[in-house]
């Protein structure tokens, strides 16, 4: 049994002052932050006109609506809804694919290991960020002004807003790629194109494919709502039925969306596994 000698506290205290006496700022930081967060929260409730009476009456209203929703019933519009759902899925698929095709070359320009110069990379990044900062619904409104009402505007809206997101994600995937493999190509005498084609793309493409699939899935969700502003798909029907208070149809449409999203989720996770799991020659 060994025993460390009892340390001389005073000496240690002198040597490592920070360990024994944490400054007041460090000890108070957390409680202060929580108090501040709570204060803003309360201010927000007041400013946004929250009132208990409104909340209670709204809740009872909501309960009433929920009762009216059961059972879900499409009435005679089922074929129409199926067509709208197909439109939504098409919008998601096309919009995402087009966005990925556009984003891949641009993402190379935004990746530090391809373009070391800040001069090019920085504007490209900011450009992508600005596109991302605008919600899909806003893009849908803009495109409706350009190509008119209908699903095509939805495709373009999803394409543009995903282009921003993909550009950023792809460039991050490229930056995360293993440098050693690229270096192997360079050391063998490959040029910059070779480094990208043989060193980077084989590593990056499966990651990108996974991201695209994931986005197709999440875009099914986005595509359901762009109909609300008139860009086609099931959202158009949904907004319509909510406006005319046809609650049974509303609940049926929501159910359809849930099932469709679950189905896409299932398919895309299978595909993702297949892509990441195997395939040597890309």
């Amino acid at each position: 049994m060994s025993q460390l000698p009892r340390p001389d506290t005073a000496e240690l205290r002198a040597k490592y002052p920070g360990v024994f006496d944490r400054p007041a700022s460090a000890r108070l930081a957390m409680p202060t932050m929580i108090a501040a967060a709570f204060a803003i929260f309360v201010y927000g409730l007041v400013d946004l006109d929250f009132s208990p009476t409104k909340l209670i009456s709204g809740m009872s209203q909501l309960g009433w609506i929920a009762m009216l929703m059961i059972p879900p019933n499409p009435g005679t519009s089922f074929p129409l809804y199926m067509q709208a759902l197909g439109e939504t899925l098409s919008i998601a698929l096309l919009g995402t694919t087009l966005a990925a095709l556009l984003a891949l070359p641009v993402s190379l320009l935004a990746a530090r290991n391809i373009i070391p110069s800040n001069l090019i990379r920085f504007p490209v990044r900011r450009f992508l960020d600005s596109i991302r900062g605008v919600d899909t619904l806003i893009w849908a409104l803009v495109w409706i002004n350009v190509v008119g009402l209908g699903p095509f505007a939805g495709v373009l809206a999803i394409m543009v807003s995903d282009f921003g997101a993909f550009g950023k994600l792809f460039s991050e995937a490229i930056e995360a790629a293993d440098r050693k493999q690229v270096e192997g190509i360079r050391a063998s005498g490959g040029n910059a194109l070779h480094e990208i084609r043989f060193g980077l793309l084989p590593q990056v493409l499966p990651v990108i494919a996974g991201q695209v699939l994931y986005f197709i899935e999440s875009n099914t969700r986005s595509a359901t709502i762009i109909g609300i502003v008139g860009a086609g798909g099931i959202g158009l029907q949904l907004a319509e039925q909510i406006r005319v208070l046809e609650w049974q149809k509303v609940s049926f449409l929501i159910l359809m969306i849930l099932i469709a999203v679950a189905a896409i989720d299932f398919i895309s996770s299978k595909l993702r596994f297949a892509i990441i799991g195997q395939r040597a020659v890309v």
Partner: peptide
């Protein structure tokens, strides 16, 4: 660490030596 391209097949990796 060998610095091979993991996702390419072995022959393609060797052919990388001919790039120049």
């Amino acid at each position: 660490q060998f610095n091979l391209v993991g996702r390419l097949d072995v022959l393609t990796n060797v052919l990388m030596g001919r790039l120049a």
